[in-house]
Design a protein around this nucleic acid. Structure first.
Length: 120
DNA sequence: AATCTTTGACCAGGT
DNA sequence: CACCTGGTCAAAGAT
């Protein structure tokens, strides 16, 4: 009953990862069966974390996806799903069920919980 | 050439 | 009223 899910990166193996000293690199895009476009990224000073904003590929689709992770721990990703989809996903994944559940109740508790206490 | 990602700037709302 | 944070849009760049 929470749109916030903590997942770990490493789902995709890139061709060549660059061993940069800076760990401020965002992880791969967690494919949940839907297609998303990143339309912004901002560092939330109040939380001390980086937030990325994704929108559904469909113009008619109001579904939104929000990724949040700490600049020091890009391995811990907080995935927040917002909105509902107009059509079924291009691929049926079992995780899609989680998205379906989010359609009933998601944003009010998620938004209210973002400002609350949290762990790293 | 088409598609998607990235960064910066602007705007709105809140304090 | 001024300042700050969060959020969104746009254009350019990269693949």
């Amino acid at each position: 009953m929470h749109a916030t899910c903590v997942c770990r990166g490493g789902t995709e193996s890139d061709k060549a990862e660059q061993p940069m000293a800076t760990a401020n690199k965002q992880p791969s895009m967690p494919e949940d069966g839907y297609r998303w476009n990143k339309y912004g990224q901002k560092y939330i000073k109040n939380v001390g974390k980086i937030r990325s904003y994704y929108r559904c590929r469909r113009k008619e689709c109001t579904a939104r996806k929000r990724l949040e992770w700490s600049p020091a721990n890009p391995t811990i990703l907080r995935v927040v799903y917002d909105g509902t989809h107009d059509h079924r996903p291009p691929s049926d994944v079992e995780q899609v069920r989680s998205v379906d559940v989010n359609q009933y109740e998601l944003r009010n508790q998620v938004l209210g919980h973002l400002n609350g206490p949290h762990q790293v």
